[in-house]
């Protein structure tokens, strides 16, 4: 079997065999949906039923998809990558005749897919229950690939950010910085259209919007295939960046005798 496919399978099986962890995540997701339903319902009610074109229903389907995409990725992924590099564990991984970053990303993607299946299903059911049908069923269909692409872009970014540990021996700061970039310019906490104009424009120019905003925007009733192309474009760039960071880092590690 292709080693990357085997890595994906390993990650997938490992996750579905941890029902405790999975149930905590689903519970966490359900709580977020309850809170966000209350928050955005109050916000929309206070603004005559619409906020920059988002109704209560579309906002809450936005929240569902954006949160699903972000929660698919292991929360402290960047920090863990940094720990493995900082502690030297990565040197053992380099002995394998496969790309370290490629195999790591395959495993992470396998784990993410298992989580996404559960959280997409439960989240969609809960959101439907809380606010009714999605604004557009074709949009909900297109949300599924958007969530997977958002997750993939997020995982690639985690590796690019985590790779700084080859130089700093720790990625805690970079994990923290990355997380906040997904929260605000990524559109996880608030749709980008609701940000002040200059911040909105900057956010659209950054890759983080492909990780939360795009799935959210599609689920909110905008099934525009160009949004998927936008994700694919940034995914290619981010995969290249992660590969380049690890390649440079591994060369440095060899020079240092690690």
């Amino acid at each position: 079997m292709n080693p990357y496919l085997a890595g994906w399978r390993l990650g997938f099986l490992r996750t579905i065999r941890s029902p405790g962890d999975m149930s905590v995540r689903i519970g966490f997701f359900a709580i977020i949906l309850v809170v966000m339903t209350a928050l955005w319902t109050a916000a929309v009610d206070a603004n005559g039923g619409s906020l920059h074109g988002y109704t209560r229903t579309s906002l809450l389907w936005y929240v569902f998809a954006a949160q699903t995409a972000v929660l698919g990725v292991r929360p402290r992924s960047v920090e863990e990558i940094g720990d493995e590099i900082g502690s030297g564990t990565v040197a053992v991984q380099m002995l394998r005749p496969v790309s370290v970053v490629g195999l790591r990303m395959s495993i992470d993607m396998g784990e993410a897919c298992a989580r996404l299946i559960a959280s997409f299903t439960v989240g969609a059911l809960l959101t439907w229950l809380f606010v009714g049908a999605p604004p557009s069923l074709p949009a909900l269909g297109l949300t599924a690939p958007a969530v997977v692409l958002g997750c993939a872009a997020n995982i690639a970014s985690c590796h690019a950010f985590g790779g700084v540990a080859f130089w700093l021996l720790d990625a805690k700061a970079s994990w923290f910085f990355f997380q906040k970039l997904v929260f605000l310019p990524g559109g996880m906490l608030i749709p980008l259209e609701l940000l002040p104009r200059p911040l909105e424009l900057i956010s659209f120019a950054l890759p983080f919007a492909t990780m939360a905003y795009v799935p959210g925007r599609i689920a909110a009733g905008h099934p525009d295939p160009l949004l998927l192309l936008w994700q694919l474009g940034w995914l290619a760039v981010l995969l290249g960046m992660a590969g380049a960071v690890f390649a440079a880092g591994e060369r440095r590690l060899q020079v240092m005798g690690g």
């Binding site: 109050a42 916000a43 206070a46 603004n47 906020l51 920059h52 906040k180 929260f183 605000l184 906490l189 608030i190 609701l194 940000l195 002040p196 911040l199």
Partner: peptide, 18 residues
């Protein structure tokens, strides 16, 4: 501080909330 920024941006957009 990121959360404080979020709340400031949120209320800037939404105004008073209940």
């Amino acid at each position: 501080i990121t959360w404080i920024i979020f709340w400031v941006l949120f209320f800037h957009q939404v105004g008073n909330l209940r």
